[in-house]
Nucleic acid binder design. Sequence first.
RNA 1: GGGCGCGUAGCUCAGCGGUAGAGCACCACGUUGACAUCGUGGGGGUCACAGGUUCGAUCCCUGUCGCGCCCACCA
Length: 894
Amino acid sequence: MLDTTFDPKATEPRLIAAWDKSGACKPDPKARAAYCIMIPPPNVTGTLHIGHALNNTLQDVLVRFERMRGKSVLWQIGLDHAGIATQMVVERELARSGNQTRRELGREEFLKRVWAWKEQSGGAIVNQLKRLGASADWSRERFTMDEGLSAAVRKVFVQLHRDGLIYKDKRLVNWDPHFETAISDLEVVQRDVKGKMWRFAYPLADGPIDGVSEIEIATTRPETMLGDGAVAVHPSDQRYANLIGRMVRLPISERLIPIIADEYPDPEFGSGAVKITGAHDFNDFAVARRHGIGMFPLMDTKARMAGDYVPQRFQGLDRLVARDRIVAEIEEMGLLRGVEDKTISQPHGDRSGVVIEPMLTEQWYVDAPKLAITATAAVEQGDSVFTPRQWEKTYYEWMRNIEPWCVSRQLWWGHRIPAWYGPDGQIFVAESEAEAKTVAKKHYGADRPLTQDEDVLDTWFSSALWPFSTLGWPNDTPELKKFYPTATLVTGFDIIFFWVARMMMMGLYFMKEVPFKDIYIHALVRDAAGAKMSKSKGNVMDPLELIDRFGADALRFTLAAMAAQGRDIKLSEPRIEGYRNFGTKLWNAARFCQMNECNWWEEFDPAQAKQTVNRWIIGETVKAARAVTTELEAFRFNEAANALYRFVWNVFCDWYLELIKPLLNGEDEAAKAETRRTAAWTLDQILRLLHPFMPFITEELWERLGEFGRKRDRLLIQERWPDLAGGLLNPASAEEIEWIIDLVSETRALRAQMNVPPAARIPLLLVGADEATCVRLERYQDLIDRLARLEYSTSADAAPEGSVTFVLGEATVALPLDGVVDFAAEAERLAKEVARLDSEITKTQAKLSNPEFVARAPEEVVDEHRERVEEFTTQRAKLADALARLRAALNPMH
RNA sequence: GGGCGCGUAGCUCAGCGGUAGAGCACCACGUUGACAUCGUGGGGGUCACAGGUUCGAUCCCUGUCGCGCCCACCA
């Protein structure tokens, strides 16, 4: 006998082990149709947060669903080496344990420590994914720094370089002074900070012109003035027309710089003149390039003032310190023309949080604009389809404005760039040092020492190859053939640019096919204020703690049920609790079945069921199965979950199990046996349908129920999805049972309104009921009595003197007057109902008398309206009659 | 500045042109009955606002107001 509740804590670990041991999560070699999902590889430093929980729940739902549908399913699992994040963690660890710093250790030794860290503490998230119930083939786990994946990275780099799609360039990059590395545009976040704007006067070098002796510029970053190469004004700006081409003497540096004309300055803003600092500002860089203006770098890798263009007294100062000193000097020189407070949006490193400096450095770039062309076209042609569709716009928007992708990072942890330099700086890009040497020898005609590029690649470079590198590429493996292009990508919108777009580019370039057919973009799980959950904000909900408290099934079902399209998820505990209760409800329904010997019977053929109630539930089950299937195919997880919730609780538990109680306790052995088997069959279907969402409780029930009926020879995870073949829907049975449900519901409402004590049966007389109704009432009298505690009798005659009649379902009911009824309240209710019906009838008739409606609305809609009028009119007549009688009874003087 | 989205019951939210929905909360009644992690019933909404399209709009279009996100930029 089952306990009264399911115990997730005791059960989950056992089932995780059982699934793994069964091999059920490996692709089925016999199945012809392939289905593959690539996990968005979590960072090796990561721990499971609620976003992972959502993301992986949805993937697991799909994976279990498709597996049960008989496909050969590969859920490719793995981890990302997460360059900056991991290096940060290990460096912090070193600092905490009083070790040497990264630089003191040296590159080789530091990397050893990182690998050691990875072996020990990395990948904790893998076990946490298992706790969530993820049914992946764990034996195929990959890591972006695996030898195989690293080889793929090298091959891709070399190939793209050979094709001219990777190149080295000296230009302005986003520089993170904390990690001392370049980062890509995407890794920069703009934040508003309070700042100031200063106005400086730059004196004209050759004295006053037309009485003007200086030109005023505005800056929020005075320290960069040391690197000014020009002052720009708009060509149409009359104020400066006569100054264009003149020189100004840059204060402090005493360099002479020209006044140039360019479209960039906005004459409306400030003085209309802009200082041009090509080495420290992206806009200025463009202007300087256009005009061949010199660039003067002012900072070292830690963003301290340094270099030839920085006077001795500022050398080594932090740029903010230098800023104050420069402003002071300008003021002393009498050239400060004003200061005002100003909110500035400042770039920050998304990992380091420090202010990013634009710096002039040499880096490796991927020609993203070129690769984006096919990647954009693929979505336009529908080779890959976003769900929800609106994300395609976001994708296009970015792809059409894409900048070259800076892929080199001045870090140690990552894929080292496969480029070697000869003594004269000649670059040899090759898949290995040996290969580079061979090429170099040919180039130089002799062996020359080569040094490898110090830099590593952006983490997202290897992630971009994930859909094919994990399948064995560049080798032509059977997996690659079978699973590429993959079926569905499930991910959050926050990494559409970082990851999805780049996988599209790389996949299309190297595989000539899109990496995935469907891209399902889910919402972000946010905190109550609608903010992104983040460790730094301290607003995270820990999924593992939620699993401890409510069980993994409850968390999974909640996430799936809330994964509606188009809105962020605000997770609430009461909701999880509610779905935990749903599990308990299912558990107890199974317990009821077990107590009543509703045991699994393999030979049971639902098509042969005779009892109306059984035929009805079989039809309802098929309807539910179809709904769940359709919704899942369209990635409407919430709809699928809701359909299941309603079917299990409101149909199976609330009605079916109640309706069969008399049969199970009755004398008709044939009916009893059929009912037991039908109940078992239905429960069996429910377990299958629910399994993708709640794998633990369903698997456990599957096994436990099997202990009593026929023995199960397979785990539920290996079972097949319910057969959706038609022929099981039985309209007649459905109509009859729905009639009972209506009757019971309405009678119950009536009882409540009449304030009848719960134990009391009340006699009701049906007046003028037709024969079919009488037969039905007769047949289901016990049931109706049980469920509503009403004893009906029927009469073909009119209602007895002094009783009130009213409508119940399709029957007219007479209520003897000596009850405990609040007639006034009842009269009010009836009057309200009559009024409602009147307005409905008027409304519907108005529609019907509109010739356009009749002509143009679909036929079935018009018919529906006609029926509605008829139905409402009959009902209204009955109610009005009852109301009249009631009023008469209330007021005998009439 | 450009783009995307959201305003539906007290709360959290579904809703795929055809009589407005769920869960929670609330009120009433109910417990030796598979389940109090429960059951039955009930109250509660001019679907943000204004126009338009349509026989018919919560749904499509336009505008307004409020809120959120993304991208770019502010010398």
